[in-house]
């Protein structure tokens, strides 16, 4: 007869125990130095392959300019219009996103708290949500002209729905048992909202805000492609008209970087505000690779 045994070792090795006991200051430095570079492998690798393919003559530089050309174009743009364009787009995104998400927080709280408001408003909101953002563009242009207002309204509208939906479902999903604790102390509704409903629905709200921000970047490009004299979308249409794929690619890279940076900033705020969560992700940082 064979006896099978199942053994396992604790995963906290000496190294981890050592870092835990090290001083706080050195821990912060270690954190900065040990930025995870694994995420850079894919983009850097892709750029290197691209450079190789163009140099070998497999791809025409008129179709896909090599990264070295892109870098030169970038340096040229960086002296002039690039920062104006980035600034213009970022300002539009910020303004539209702030307006849209603020409105969404107000409307979402009202609809989340009062069932009668849900009865009156939810069907209309769901129907409006089904209309693609771009379908509103002609109307917005008739109403507000081709200036800043129509762009910001479009961005605000795009950011509105994800934030509204997530806050609404966040409030509806708050644990009734926690609300009851507040009711036990005879706390009036505004106090219940501030002390229990808002903190408890923050995880949902943050998901919605981050999604809303990515949609805001999406619509800023759409709006600027249609009519603008500056902005990243304008760079894109400029590149198309001049048949300059390098301009288009620089614009795309800018969008990728800006989107990633703004999302990371949001993630940082989220992690700070939600450090109390006892979830899978916060416990072990997800599944180790």
């Amino acid at each position: 007869m064979t006896i099978s045994t199942h053994e396992f070792r604790g995963e906290a090795q000496d190294e981890q125990i050592k870092t835990r006991s090290s001083r706080a200051s050195s821990r912060i430095i270690a954190k900065i130095v040990s930025v995870d570079l694994r995420g850079a492998i894919v983009p850097v690798g892709a750029l290197a392959l691209l450079e190789l393919f163009v140099r070998m003559g497999w791809i025409s530089p008129y179709v896909l300019p090599p990264p070295s050309d892109l870098y030169e174009t970038f340096l040229y743009l960086a002296e002039g219009p690039l920062w104006t364009n980035i600034g213009a787009s970022a300002l539009r995104v910020l303004t539209g996103f702030v307006i849209g998400s603020l409105l969404a927080v107000i409307v979402g709280s009202v609809v989340g708290l009062w069932y009668s408001a849900e009865r009156y408003l939810e069907p209309s909101f769901q129907a409006l949500r089904a209309v693609p953002s771009l379908a509103w563009v002609p109307l917005l242009m008739i109403w507000f002209g081709i200036g800043e207002t129509s762009k910001i309204v479009l961005i605000a509208k795009s950011a509105f729905f994800p934030v509204y939906l997530s806050l609404f479902s966040g409030i509806r999903n708050v644990d009734r048992k926690l609300v009851e604790v507040g009711e036990m102390y005879r706390q009036p509704l505004p106090v219940l909202v501030w002390r229990i409903l808002i903190p408890a629905s923050l995880p949902h709200l943050f998901t919605g805000l981050r999604y809303g921000l990515s949609l805001a970047w999406l619509s800023v490009v759409a709006a600027e492609l249609l009519a603008a004299s500056e902005g990243i979308g304008y760079m894109l249409s400029d590149g198309r008209e001049l048949s300059r794929p390098d301009l288009v690619l620089i614009a795309i890279i800018c969008l990728a970087v800006l989107g990633k940076v703004s999302d990371s900033l949001f993630k940082l705020i989220e992690d700070r505000c939600l450090s109390w969560r006892d979830s899978y992700a916060t416990a072990i940082g997800g599944r180790p690779a």
Binding site: K177, L178, E180, V181, M184, R195, I196, P199, A200, L202, L274, W276, R277, D278
Partner: peptide, 11 residues
């Protein structure tokens, strides 16, 4: 009132 579960606010 003390509930069956602690019902503490996690935040």
């Amino acid at each position: 009132f003390v509930f069956q579960e602690p019902r503490l606010m996690p935040w």
